[in-house]
Each structure stands twice: as C-alpha cells, then as structure tokens.
C-alpha cells in the first residue's frame, strides 16, 4: 500500500475524492495568491493540484488543472494591479502556462508508465497472455476457491507439435508469429472465467474452473481444432497436443495439479501428437 492509496483509496469513488481535493486546493491557493499580492511567490503551490490530478486520474485532468491554475494565477496577478503592459502580461501568461502544462504532462506520463509496468509484470510480452508467475498466483487462488466450493476443475497443458521444426526452417520470427496466433486462438476459444497463460517456450496452460469432464473435453477439442486451422491457414506444420486432468477431488495445491496435467500432456504426445487427452482423478461412487 502506498501513501496516496491510503489517503485517497482507489476504485470508482477515488477519482471523485481526488477531484474535490484538487478543486478545493487550487481555489485555496488562488485565494492566498490574491491575498498576498504580487510580492509573495505563491504560484509554485499550483503545481500541487496539477500534479495530483495528473498522477491520480489522467493526463486530461492534469491539463484541466494546469489551465485552471493559469487562469486563476492571471486573475490574482491582475487584481494586484502591477500596471504592466499587455505584452508583459502575455509573456508571463505563456511562460507560466508552459511550465504548468509541462509538469502535468510529465507527471501523468510517469504514472501511466508505472501502471503499464505493473501490467507487464503479469503478462507474457509476446502473446499478451498471462505469464507463468501470474498464472501461478491466479491458479493458487482458483484451487483454493475450488477447495471451498468442492466443484471440479480442469487443468489443461498444451504443447505445440513441430514447433522446433518451424523455428529451424522458417526462423524465430515466424516461430514468434505462430505463438502469437496460438495465443489469440486460446483467448478466443475460452471463457471469461478461464485462465490462459504461456508457461514459456511453446507451452501453454488453460485452467477451467467449475468444469467437469464433458464440458472440458468439448472445449479443449474445439480449441485444438481452432489452433490447427489457424496454423494451416498460415501454412505452418504446427498442431497441438493437449493433456488435461479433471479434478473431481480437489488437489491440495496448484503444483500437484500442474504436475498431473503435464504428465497427461506427455502421454498425449507419446500417443502420436495432435490430440486431446482428458483424464480425471478422484470421484466416488
């Protein structure tokens, strides 16, 4: 938990709270600016609401407060009546506005980058799917959730067939392209509640919560067909071997589940690739 989250929280109401603080802040600063006249250098305080809005909400809000601050600063300055010429006013307003806008843009840029970085740390750069680390976290959640509900789940391990051959003959760029296409096929063929991740290389996993054998088998078969078709369209000799385990009895940990699904995938490979093998564990009479 960082400091500003403790102060403002986040979520839908956060932006409203930040806006209120910024508006009140900028008006207070303007009032002080007006009251102290031209000699006291109050104007750097305007950076505070500008930066806060840009950091917490968006570039547009930062720019909005930069504009508002420029207007209020101009108003306070003109009310103090220094008797400058129009040209001097114009130069002052422009330099002031530029510095306000610059700060708002820089701050929001850093904020957006940090957010992106957080997302990237959970994402596989090539396919846009979840990465292995992120999958383990979601998966641990999902297994514990299944332990509570007692509902069966299915974990599928996918490994591309002939991927090495593709890489060796057509080059890594084509290989990467194929992985991307597989990634989008997986996303398209699974449901919102499923977790799809790239574990590394040409290995993928699909976690199907609350999914017994029949539903899992039809979903995975559809998925294999879809991947095969996409590969064929590109003229790539790639198919997919899928091994899945249906856990009618919920395992103690995600690691056990991954191990089992991986073992089933190897059996599918040994049985001659390009096939879906679904096994199940647990279940009582």
């Amino acid at each position: 938990m960082n400091v500003e989250r403790m102060v403002f929280g986040s979520g839908p109401n956060k932006n409203v709270r930040v806006m209120i603080v910024c508006v009140v802040g900028v008006l207070l600063i303007a009032a002080v600016d007006y009251a102290t006249g031209i000699e006291a250098r109050v104007y750097p305080l305007y950076y505070l609401p500008i930066a806060l809005g840009a950091w917490q909400i968006s570039t547009r809000i930062g720019v909005l407060f930069a504009t508002l601050s420029t207007a209020l600063w101009l108003f306070a300055m003109s009310m103090a009546g220094p008797g400058w010429s129009v040209e001097i006013y114009a130069v002052n307003v422009v330099t002031q506005a530029v510095s306000f806008f610059l700060v708002s843009l820089l701050v929001s840029n850093i904020s957006i980058r940090l957010q992106k970085e957080r997302e990237l740390s959970q994402t596989d750069g090539l396919t846009g799917l979840k990465n292995a680390r992120s999958f383990r976290e979601f998966g641990e959640f999902a297994v514990s959730s299944a332990q509570r509900t007692g509902r069966p789940f299915t974990l599928a391990y996918l490994d591309l067939d002939n991927f090495k051959k593709l890489n060796d003959t057509l080059g890594h760029e084509v290989g990467d392209q194929a992985l991307k296409v597989v990634g989008s096929a997986l996303t398209a063929q699974t449901r919102k509640s499923d977790i799809v991740a790239r574990m590394g290389g040409d290995e993928f996993v699909v976690f199907l919560p609350d999914t017994p054998e029949a539903a899992a088998t039809s979903l995975l078969e559809r998925l294999a067909v879809s991947v095969g078709k996409d590969m064929q369209e590109h003229g790539w000799p790639i198919t997919v071997s899928i091994g899945a385990n249906v856990f009618l009895e919920i395992p103690d940990s995600l690691a056990i589940a991954i191990e089992r699904a991986d073992a089933v995938m190897y059996r599918a490979k040994r049985a001659g690739k390009n096939r879906v093998l679904v096994e199940s564990t647990g279940g009582r009479s």
């Binding site: 992120s134 959730s145 299944a146 919102k192 919560p209």
Partner: peptide
C-alpha cells in the same frame, strides 16, 4: 483480490463468475 506473497502483495482482478 489480493495475493499475499510475503515480500510483496499483488492486486489481481478475478473473473466475476468465480465462486
């Protein structure tokens, strides 16, 4: 939801239809 790994805590958006 929060994932408590010990040294760090990660926020994650779980699918709404989960349990």
């Amino acid at each position: 939801a929060l994932f408590d790994a010990g040294p760090f805590v990660e926020r994650m958006t779980l699918p709404a239809s989960w349990a």
